[in-house]
């Protein structure tokens, strides 16, 4: 491989995985969060507890599931409980430290749309819908969001607020009385964003190696701000890259037997 020796997608997965502390209890959403969470478990956070909405608690998959209720999750879990119990006892009961979500669209206050593009009654694009996200984002101790950076996904105004981040900013989330602290980081393939402590507007606080500021500005649908001190993300080290590639190799092999 030429260039830095890793891809933007690998940098995104590694940067997101580093935000999961060992021993934390993490509710894992579908897609990119699963990759980062399982990478964390294979590197610095072997005791990370992964909970999936279908019912597995303490899942330790050897390959990444295509869906969120694959057999691999239940066979490797500490326990498997009914889906209603996941939402009632484990999430609403306050036992989740980190909710880890993907998104189709996000705005500057980290609100998420996964419902429609266009008008709800006559949508241009019908997206899958809420899934577990609204309550995960409301109830988990805090939330991490991971998604690819583009003008289509980082928008000035959401067509639909499926899942609340900080609503219209400031103390709006606190006034709403949501138990969790809300999003602490948004990780993309270009950068890491964190909410401003006062306004709650997402600002770029870390830029991945080799990424120009102009690319982030270009890929963001609002006039994006940068924090006063912006760090450069530490590139993936060999252990992280090997663990990620091994996980993806095993996953491709497992799914490749089918495909």
């Amino acid at each position: 491989m030429s260039g830095p020796g890793f891809t933007a997608a690998e940098m995104m997965a590694v940067a997101a995985s580093r935000l999961l502390p060992d021993g934390a209890v993490c509710f894992v959403g579908i897609g990119l969060p699963g990759t980062a969470a399982n990478l964390a478990r294979r590197t610095h956070a072997p005791d990370l507890v992964l909970i999936y909405e279908s019912g597995p608690i303490g899942a330790k998959p050897e390959v990444l599931p295509l869906s969120i209720g694959d057999g691999e999750l239940s066979l490797t879990a500490d326990t498997v409980v009914p889906t209603p119990e996941i939402f009632r006892y484990w999430l609403q009961g306050g036992r989740i430290d980190i909710g880890f979500l993907g998104a189709a669209q996000i705005d500057r206050f980290a609100n998420i749309n996964t419902t429609v593009i266009g008008d709800y009654r006559k949508p241009k694009v019908r997206l899958p819908g809420a899934g577990g996200a609204p309550e995960i984002a409301a109830m988990a101790g805090r939330t991490l969001i991971v998604l690819r950076h583009s003008r289509r996904s980082f928008v000035e105004k959401l067509d639909f607020v499926t899942t609340v981040g900080f609503l219209d900013g400031g103390d709006a989330r606190r006034r709403l009385g949501l138990p969790g602290a809300g999003p602490t980081h948004v990780v993309t393939d270009l950068c890491v964003m964190e909410p401003d402590p006062e306004t709650k507007e997402l600002r770029v606080t870390g830029i991945h190696p080799g990424v120009e500021r102009g690319r982030i500005v270009e890929a963001t649908g609002w006039p994006v701000r940068f924090a006063e001190e912006v760090t450069t993300t530490t590139p993936p080290d060999r252990r992280e890259l090997e663990a990620l590639r091994e996980l993806q190799r095993r996953t491709a092999l497992a799914h490749g037997e089918d495909a």
Binding site: T115, A130, P134, E135, A138, F160, V164, G177, P179
Partner: peptide, 24 residues
């Protein structure tokens, strides 16, 4: 999930901490 539990419990509705701020 809660609405199924309420249905199985013979109740007309379920209560949950949810939806605040959402457009749903």
């Amino acid at each position: 999930a809660n609405a199924y539990v309420a249905g199985a419990s013979g109740l007309p509705f379920a209560v949950l901490r949810g939806y605040r701020g959402s457009d749903l």
